[in-house]
Write a protein that binds this DNA or RNA. Structure first.
Lengths: 207, 207, 207, 207
DNA sequence: TATGAATGAGAATTCATTCAT
DNA sequence: AATGAATGAATTCTCATTCAT
């Protein structure tokens, strides 16, 4: 019989993870201190060690938290039920628009932590596995969209398209991170045109 | 009056920067220690402080060093004099091929340091300026290629295309970093097809 | 008005002290944690502080508990009513045998805590007083045995003998602690022979 | 080419170990802090970690240092060349006297660290091995004395005697530790008499 | 009473930087 | 110039003790 309920505890764990997400994103995993996190989470230094047994465990658990949040965000994107009735390229463009719309300054935090994870995963096999899973899920969401369309695309081509699609997105995110801002509206419009053209590749590639 | 010649000193500075590049890339800026660097550079701990006044200065100076090396690499790519006589989309594809060919495991080092810089630059305005310059130069190299072609493309569209082009590249690099490997050959072929299609956008977009 | 009866409380206090004895003996006073103790005593962390006001107090109170247990053990030894009718040296040997028989692995616990106390008492005057009392009682039990015998021994010689007698015992206990085992049976037999000889010293030393 | 010579380094290592010996003896291994040691050794906190990689390593290395010192002390005892010409019991008494004479308050430090080691060795197998070796050497020094005498004693009896001899010594040391003082002179004299009697056991036990 | 969550002072260890040689 | 020993501030983590329930 725990003194605080299981749900309270879970709630607080999320609170700490959210604080950790912000701190790690702002400062970087290694530079960030436990002090920073507990201060942001408004708890004492000792308490955090009843939730996580080390700084590294916070980081690793954070991946899962981040994935949950991302999944939720993506679900919001995908629940647009009309997507399936549109031409495939139109559906992809709608998705693209909603992703781009996420790139607000609050989401810079999210963008950074992803790259933080990617960099770390290149040195930490455990993390790498986690990140591969996440990547696979993202890829599959596009593949699914493609495969569910009216046009029959070869699966391997759908996979390649999906990879390239996310590469564009991730590359623009990298720009967003390093410059602190997205390309201006005019430029984004033109980029969208090219993306549109790229998506139309699928319309023509019927298997 | 220095006891070693100016050129010797420059030479050694580069040696240290190369060591730092490797160490920072392998370990990350914050986790890396001065000891790691001096050991790799084969110099004493005290000596490095006659070249750089702090760890941060090494990191900042490294950007310039890294840019030089990158530029040299890019020059090798661009010296293909025939590019201009080809169709624009073909020229871009050739460039793409040569970039992709660089992604060997030795170059993972380079890929990682770039993202290390990008992440840091999002927290360090001085670094951000440096990275913006570098990005601009990369963008312009594509824009120039486009503008020098036979087809007249609106400059702003050339810029947007260039941005998207590099986003793809950077996104694939991110994949390379996080997965430790590039997509397999078959997939890269298919990606190339889509890239080709995307480049052909330009052929049709005469101003 | 206490919610649990005084006797229940005493009973539980002993329970805690027994747990503390085991934990302190296994881990050492300083290394042992309150958590270890409450876990072994099956009570909550908060509760222990209603019985003892600090870790140190537990340790100090433990001395008394340990002395009680020891006394009980010794009583069992001394209740051999025939001792007095034997020759003094024989009586001492019988006592020696019964002490040696106690040195089983379960009693390693007891042996260790004694030395734990002794070491601490060399730094803590309060503890030192407690331990001196205990030592005195042990000494006197032998002195009494000697003085009650038929042979008249000078009191100061009885005291000296008693001291040496316990020194042997304590020294063998130290061996037991540090080696995790007593000398083997054959060796103990030979040691006993020498002890016997030593005890015979008294038979000849009539005042 | 080290900046300080190998011998200077060794010298300082001994200095640190001496400081550690004092601190661990005064405070106990677990309670003692690195700060205490570096303060006593008059060095900075960081420096000690260039000599030892952890507090535990200091403790373990200390065993060796302590054994060296003890060996030196024992050598001084044993170099008494006349021992061999005396009766065995007389030789043992002379040795006993010189050991007892060591028990001055400066040597309380030494006495305590020995018991500190013994207690710890009951929890740490690595340490236990080291301490067993030391014990064996001590035992053998007495056995050798016995075996080199004119009287032929059965080896196993020599071993048992040696064990008991040291038990007495160690038990008196335990008294010394816990009481902070040795028994008074008069008592020691009487103890000596009994010891003498015990040693005479050997004179009569010719094989 | 009883619980165990919460606190924060304190300990070990690391490492950028300085300094004596 | 060059070395690497020396420093000590900063960081992670532990745990005795307190406190709200």
């Amino acid at each position: 019989m725990p003194k605080i309920s299981v749900s309270k505890r879970k709630e607080r764990k999320r609170l700490i993870l959210q604080a950790a997400l912000e701190v790690f994103s702002e400062t970087g995993y290694c530079s960030a201190t436990i002090d920073d996190i507990v201060k942001k989470a408004n708890i004492s230094k000792g308490l955090i060690y009843t939730y996580f047994k080390s700084k590294e465990e916070i980081f690793l658990d954070l991946v899962e938290y981040w994935q949950e949040i991302s999944k939720k965000d993506n679900k919001e994107l995908n629940t647009d039920k009309d997507l399936k009735d549109k031409k495939l390229s139109e559906g992809l463009l709608i998705l693209w628009d909603s992703i781009v719309n996420q790139w607000t300054s609050e989401n810079l935090l999210f963008a950074r932590i992803q790259y933080e994870f990617w960099l770390e995963s290149s040195r930490n096999p455990e993390l790498q596995e986690l990140m591969k899973d996440k990547a696979k899920a993202s890829l599959q969401s596009i593949e699914k969209l493609i495969n569910e369309g009216n046009i029959k695309i070869e699966p391997s081509m759908a996979a390649a398209f999906s990879r390239l699609w996310w590469s564009q997105v991730d590359g623009l995110v990298a720009y967003f991170i390093s410059h602190g801002t997205t390309p201006d509206g005019e430029e984004m419009k033109r980029i969208r045109e090219i993306i549109k053209h790229m998506c139309e590749f699928l319309d023509k590639t019927e298997n």
